[in-house]
Simulated scan of single mutants.
Amino acid sequence: MRRNMLLPLIFGLLGTAILCSLGTWQLKRMAWKTEVLAAIDAKILAEPVPIPLSVSQDEDQFLPVRATGSIGPEEITILASVQKVGPGYRVIAPFEMTDGRRILLDRGFVAIPAKDAPRPKVEATITGNLLWPDELNSSTPSPDTEAGVWFARDIPALAEALNTEPILMVQRETTEENLVTTPFPVDSSGIPNKHLEYVVTWFGLAIVWLGMTAFFLWRIRHRSV
């Protein structure tokens, strides 16, 4: 082998090995994330329990719960979108349970024309999941009080506005006879899992790197002929 080809060959093989190792690491991360999402889905769909007197975000995120009480007519609408349906609103209402506790209830989705439709007080048994959404960031607009539209489920602010405990239950099922919303239940689809994209990216770069190395070595060899 010509001496002027040795350094590019080493550099090319080393770069390919590094890129392949990153792809392999992402494969392992993808397997781990798949197990995590499966565990979350299993927890979401487990047998519901009464809402605990004391809740913890770390321990009770996604906890399946069931409660009976009355859904108040007061509500806050939060701008949202449903795939294949389009924009609309989440409806957040106070839910007063039979023991007197008041919590937040995410009743589900309504289309834009139904934003101001009447939704009177109703008694129901609700099955759903506790949730602490991660929706607020530095670019989230403040609520538009004139239009009655919020842009994120800010639990402390919602609880203060609707005079409830800072606990949010997202409705999955309800015994209401006449549904006025479409349930927008908790699932794991909103949790990002882009590891397959990273796997394809790193191994794709490894193939390109190896191909460019082979081309570069071919050029060196033919220039030296």
Rank of each mutant, 00 (worst) to 15 (best):
P8E: 04
L9Y: 07
I10E: 08
W209D: 10
F151E: 05
A31K: 12
S81W: 13
R119E: 06
G72C: 07
L205V: 08
R90P: 08
S138L: 15
F62E: 06
D134L: 10
I191L: 11
F216W: 12
F215K: 12
M212C: 11
S56A: 02
L27N: 10
I92H: 04
L14V: 14
S21G: 10
V208L: 14
L79Q: 15
E47V: 06
L6R: 10
V200M: 15
V122F: 08
K194G: 15
A17S: 12
A206Q: 09
T16N: 09
V199L: 13
T68Y: 00
I191R: 12
E75V: 02
D144P: 01
L37E: 09
C20G: 09
L19W: 03
G204L: 12
V85G: 13
P64Q: 00
W25T: 02
E96Q: 15
I155M: 04
P120Q: 06
D58P: 07
W25D: 07
P48T: 03
N193I: 05
A93S: 15
T182Y: 13
P166S: 01
A161L: 01
M1D: 09
S188F: 03
S56T: 03
L131I: 00
P8F: 06
S224G: 09
I112C: 07
G211N: 11
R107Y: 01
S188G: 14
R107F: 03
E47F: 09
D134P: 04
K43D: 11
M30W: 14
W218E: 10
I71K: 00
I167K: 01
G108L: 00
F95Q: 05
V65Q: 02
E47D: 14
G211R: 10
P73T: 11
T127P: 06
P113I: 02
T34C: 13
T16E: 08
A38Q: 15
P73F: 11
F203I: 03
P192V: 08
R107G: 05
E35V: 09
P48A: 05
S138C: 10
T201D: 12
I92G: 07
V200R: 13
I18Y: 07
S70R: 15
F216K: 10
A39I: 08
T181Q: 04
G15S: 04
S142R: 13
L131Y: 03
A117Q: 08
E59R: 11
E135V: 00
V180N: 14
L7I: 06
P94N: 04
G69K: 06
V186T: 00
P64E: 00
L19N: 01
R29L: 06
R221M: 08
L131N: 00
G69D: 01
A157Q: 06
T34A: 15
L168W: 02
W218V: 08
K28Q: 13
K115H: 00
